[in-house]
């Protein structure tokens, strides 16, 4: 298992093959093979994305053709202009940004808060309550979305911004994820802080939160991506055009009988870019080896 080799070595930088000042030819060959292997895998991984981009520049009838066409016969840059002028992309973008940001903030905030309760405070019924959270994840949404819709609708919330925010922000996922990350933070840290007379909220804010940068980043990336890409939620809840999200807008924009696939691909490319930005910002939080030792004081 060469993977584990890499892990453990990675913790002691001097031993990493590619960081070593003196290299044996065998290791250089190994490194070259390793990197070329990874590059091949990367190409394979990126191929569908590449096809998505070139398809956005094709004419509609060229996209689904046999055999598959990798490059357009003529480059249709006007697809991008068309979508900006014909479709209401700027409204959709703003709405989607609003939903994704608000949902991500709520999910991270309430999720990490509840997770602290589940992870660091022992109270009766904790496990049962937590299991109920997980249990709801096991129910397919399409089965209960009509009862849920009727409920929100009877409160007058369907076709409002609130519906999408409420729908997405309180899922069990964030609580579960953050709880598990808090579980891996040694109990002694919070115990010691309690002995020092810190309140529970103080422990959460001063001890636990500063340690959870990478997990909050992971939760934020995933929540943001999922909210951004959600189609069914907005489909069922939103009817007013000024509330449309990107996924909903694109799908409603295309025509029923001459399905405009070039436009779908153009929209998909445009809608992926913001996610990439969030991903790149978020992954800056993944810095190797944050030391919990410093906190033990």
């Amino acid at each position: 298992m060469s993977m584990s080799q890499v892990t453990s070595e990675s913790k002691i930088p001097e031993q990493i093959a590619w960081n070593k000042p003196k290299r044996s030819p065998a290791k250089i060959v190994g490194t070259v093979i390793g990197y070329s292997g990874m590059l091949v895998v990367s190409v394979f991984t990126l191929l569908p994305f590449f096809w998505m981009i070139t398809s956005s520049l094709k004419s509609n009838n060229e996209i689904y053709s046999i055999p598959i066409k990798w490059f357009p016969s003529t480059w249709h840059w006007e697809n991008y202009i068309h979508i900006w002028t014909q479709a209401d992309m700027s409204t959709w973008l703003l709405n989607t940004i609003f939903f994704s940001v608000v949902v991500t903030l709520l999910q991270v905030f309430t999720g990490s808060f509840a997770a602290y309760g589940f992870s660091k405070i022992r109270f009766r019924g904790r496990n049962a309550l937590f299991l109920i959270y997980i249990a709801t994840m096991a129910v397919p949404w399409q089965a209960y979305m009509i009862p849920q819709f009727k409920m929100l609708s009877s409160l007058g919330l369907s076709d409002t911004r609130w519906s999408i925010v409420l729908l997405q922000a309180f899922g069990a996922f964030g609580v579960f994820m953050m709880k598990q990350f808090y579980d891996s933070i040694p109990e002694e840290l919070s115990e010691a802080a309690r002995l020092d007379g810190l309140s529970e909220f103080g422990i959460y804010r001063r001890i636990i939160l500063p340690l959870s940068g990478s997990s909050i980043a992971a939760l934020a990336i995933i929540t943001f991506t999922n909210t951004w890409n959600d189609y069914m939620g907005p489909l069922i809840y939103l009817r007013s055009q000024n509330l449309y999200t990107i996924q909903l807008g694109l799908k409603l924009f295309i025509s029923q009988y001459s399905a405009d696939f070039a436009m779908i691909m153009t929209g998909s490319v445009l809608s992926v870019l913001p996610i990439l930005v969030v991903f790149l910002i978020g992954q800056n939080q993944f810095i190797e080896g944050i030391a919990t030792s410093g906190m033990k004081g």
């Binding site: 509840a114 309760g117 109270f123 309550l129």
Partner: peptide
């Protein structure tokens, strides 16, 4: 009490 207070903001929505 503390446990429920921490959980409350998420739990009410949930």
């Amino acid at each position: 009490r503390n446990g429920l207070l921490f959980i409350a903001p998420n739990f009410l929505g949930f």
